[in-house]
Design a binder for these strands. Structure first.
Lengths: 238, 238
DNA sequence: CCAAAACCTGACCAAACCGTCAACTTTTTT
DNA sequence: AAAAAAGTTGACGGTTTGGTCAGGTTTTGG
């Protein structure tokens, strides 16, 4: 509750150490939580991977649950960035394609966090805060209204906006959460950038065309590069 | 295998007991594994829920892993049933819609098993047998060839078949694995049948239209009831 | 320069875990 | 009816777990 006092908070050595160690613990935890889940992960392993003694981990975090929740909260905040693509003033084709690409990029680069979140939801969201829950709901309503407005304007089909949103979320999420299955199906190791692009553009194709989105001017949202997003262009791998 | 010998295998009381107890253990385990994951589930809890002493559980199953794998194996076998919809001789619209509906029905009725499987894959498929892995791959290849044949025949767009398949699998799976999130987004409890139908038909709409499937005769595969699946018909909730 | 604050850590604990086992009862077979 | 097989179970062992704590060192502020 200190409102007036608020010291300048200079960059002292101790503060740097604090930040560095907290981050080390979080980084190690993401990896381990993703691979083993909340119950499967042990603080001892997290400590080892962080290069810190176990007791030191408990100096920075009061409990395993606290580490876990911190990571989940950070992740949800990061996801919001991709959502900004879905803007009512934008061309629906650009907006949807932009969202799918951003979300897929996230699946590619932040696989472990995505898995952690998936794990959490599969287990019923035991550690999801009420704030996060209502945030998710608010987003759904807000973006849903945009879909409905586009439909009213004749820019896309009339579909239940929540389920469209779920399909977007689910299909992009799959490539992070179930990468082991994707790799099995494609008979490959970690997907290459190119394979990921094929996946992305396949989703873009099906979603845009499937939602009856009347495309605006440019094919690819603001970056007219190799892969076009026109619904009619075929998207295949070698 | 055994063709000649095969004793009558009469229905003795002990054999009935065996079957009943094994099933009790499996049923209890599905629930608990789904909610807590492999590491989070304890044999003590499984025993309690089965109404059996812990040592008795170990009489029927050699290890926790064995219970777990048994359930996964059963599940994969059950999933194959839905796949039979994707038949090269069928009308693509009927086939795809049929598969989606069957898969969604499964998500609705076998939520717990689906979650167990999701959990397993998220954790990298630690307990997935080599047989199951290659089975998944074989299915992908087999069904992929059908998609390609349909594309060559001009019955649907040319898309990478694996990614189409993944989108089908992922979007239907979502309603089981992430039901907690779906319920949060829709601000509801367990989804009603009707809500589930809206979800199903939304997916059908987007996939059929998005893949450029030229629909055959009837709108809904063999059951011409309330909700049509024609790509142009709007599918919305109240 | 020194007291206070922040940081570090080896050793420890109670609880929970998976799996075992010997001794028991019940059912099946001969 | 007796031997064999199948089912049942309480008690226990060895290990791992999340978390604590007392006592240490280092850094900071005055």
């Amino acid at each position: 509750m200190t409102v007036v006092e608020e010291r300048p908070k200079q960059e002292t050595r101790a503060r740097r150490v604090r930040e560095r160690n907290r981050q080390r613990i979080l980084d190690a935890s993401i990896e381990i939580f993703a691979r083993k889940g909340f119950d499967g992960a042990s603080i001892a392993e997290i400590a080892e991977r962080s290069g810190l003694p176990k007791a030191n981990v408990y100096y920075y975090f009061p409990s395993k649950e606290d580490i876990y929740s911190t990571i989940i909260d950070n992740l949800i905040a990061e996801w919001d960035a991709a959502l900004e693509h879905i803007d009512i003033d934008r061309d629906p084709a650009d907006a949807l394609a932009g969202y799918i690409r951003a979300k897929m990029e996230f699946s590619y680069k932040r696989t472990a966090q995505s898995k952690m979140f998936a794990n959490e939801i599969v287990h019923g969201g035991r550690f999801l805060s009420r704030a996060n829950r209502s945030h998710m709901r608010a987003i759904t309503i807000e973006k849903g209204k945009i879909f409905e407005a586009w439909a009213r304007a004749g820019k896309m089909d009339r579909l239940d906006p929540t389920h469209v949103f779920i399909l977007l979320w689910g299909s992009t999420q799959f490539y992070a959460d179930f990468d082991a299955m994707v790799e099995s199906m494609l008979n490959t190791g970690r997907l290459t950038r190119e394979q990921f692009n094929v996946a992305t553009e396949t989703i873009v194709h099906i979603v845009l065309k499937g939602c009856g989105v009347r495309s605006g001017a440019r094919p690819s949202a603001g970056r007219p590069n190799s892969h076009g997003s026109r619904a009619s262009r075929s998207v295949r791998s070698a």
